[in-house]
Nucleic acid binder design. Structure first.
Length: 361
DNA sequence: CTTCTGACA
DNA sequence: TGTCAGTA
């Protein structure tokens, strides 16, 4: 390497790769992608000069942010329509990644703890542990799988009144919402608190699906075959509702009706809304104050909400408007540069069960 | 001995 | 991206 001194700092592929901690293969890939265009010698050997090194340093810097080569290509081509959008996408991707890593860490940690306390953990046990926690977890890949499963076309079976009609009853979700299943001519109706009744169709015993929305209901029974609860499968999530008696269902409905009629918000509802807004402005939503399903959805939305709030500027005022049919408190929220209509619902345990923001009038 | 291209994992 | 084959 002392023959042809690289006094003019021209490096061969191997030299350049070593200097930047890359491989020659990587350099070739970047070149194929149009990220760099090194000159060539007569023998067609690649030559990397100062400009190429600088360019590669930029690429490596962007890679450290976790950006894919494709994004870097677009970014460096200078044709980025919106840098903010690119970063928002990247942020959600990283959050996803972090959640998965945390999930894995918690599993490994649990197994390790068991081992260190003297208990034996077999491989099959470990696999079982990982599988079981995946069944109910909210990790992005599980949700993606469920979304697919829930979007799958359904085939209806003939409605049999004696069999399918046995799921009639009232069920209450963790959110406090009540689902009522009733008979109608030749079928069944499902009605969620404050919403209109929608027909559901049988797919199998204790398994029904909606036609108007992509959602399914699977009913569960105890050992004696008594109806125990129902699971609503929708949007990649599963929400469980426990069976309640008619009187309780009635009470929930009456209570909601009174809240709507007399415009009674949840206790502390406005303070809670202000807190949620402040948290989202800071980019640190308190997911522990939300039901798990909402927390999962909120994690996905957080970057978008934060960007939107940043655009609107400082909070000016919060005014209660009323209670919607389905039970959410609605507020007009004024910011420096615009207004939002916000709605929120609280679960019986006081946790946030739902929240939405939409552009105000 | 090294690079380069193309193909495949 | 790693790796391998066949060249120049």
């Amino acid at each position: 390497m002392s023959d042809k001194r690289n006094r003019d700092h021209l490096l061969t592929a191997a030299e350049c790769a070593e200097r930047l901690g890359l491989t020659v293969r990587a350099l070739r890939v970047y070149e194929d992608r149009g990220l760099i265009a090194p000159r060539r010698t007569e023998k067609n050997w690649r030559l990397y000069g100062g400009a190429e090194i600088a360019r590669l340093t930029e690429i490596l810097a962007l890679k450290r942010l976790g950006l894919s080569l494709t994004r870097i290509t677009i970014l460096l081509a200078g044709t980025t329509p919106d840098l903010g959008q690119t970063l928002t996408i990247q942020q959600s991707a990283l959050v996803d990644l972090r959640d998965r890593v945390e999930h894995s860490l918690s599993l490994v940690g649990a197994a390790l703890k068991k081992i260190s306390s003297g208990q034996a953990v077999s491989i099959s046990e470990l696999i079982t542990l990982a599988k079981e926690t995946r069944m109910t977890d909210l990790s992005p890949d599980t949700v993606a799988w469920r979304r697919y499963e829930q979007a799958r076309p359904r085939t209806e079976v003939r409605f049999e009144p004696e069999k399918h009609g046995s799921v009639v009853g009232d069920f209450q979700f963790e959110t406090g919402d009540v689902l009522s299943i009733t008979r109608c001519d030749g079928g069944l109706l499902a009605q969620l608190t404050g919403q209109s009744a929608i027909e559901i169709y049988p797919e199998a015993d204790d398994l029904f699906f909606y036609r108007v929305v992509q959602a399914q209901l699977s009913f569960t029974r105890d050992e004696r075959g008594e109806l125990e609860g129902v699971v609503l499968h929708q949007g990649g999530y599963e929400q469980t509702a426990k069976r309640i008696d008619e009187r309780r269902a009635r009470a929930v409905a009456d209570d909601l009706e009174k809240r709507v009629k007399d415009k009674i918000p949840f206790p502390n509802s406005e303070a809670l809304l202000r807190r949620v807004i402040a948290e989202h402005q800071r980019g640190e939503p308190d997911y522990d104050a939300m039901l798990p399903a909402l927390a999962a959805a909120a994690r996905e939305q957080a970057p978008i909400v934060k960007a939107e709030l940043a655009r609107l500027g400082a909070l000016r005022s919060v005014a209660f408007k009323g209670v919607l049919q389905e039970g959410s408190d609605v507020y007009d929220v004024r910011f420096e540069k615009g207004t939002l209509e916000c709605g929120l619902t609280l679960a019986p345990d006081g946790k946030l069960s739902g929240i939405y923001f939409r552009p105000g009038l």
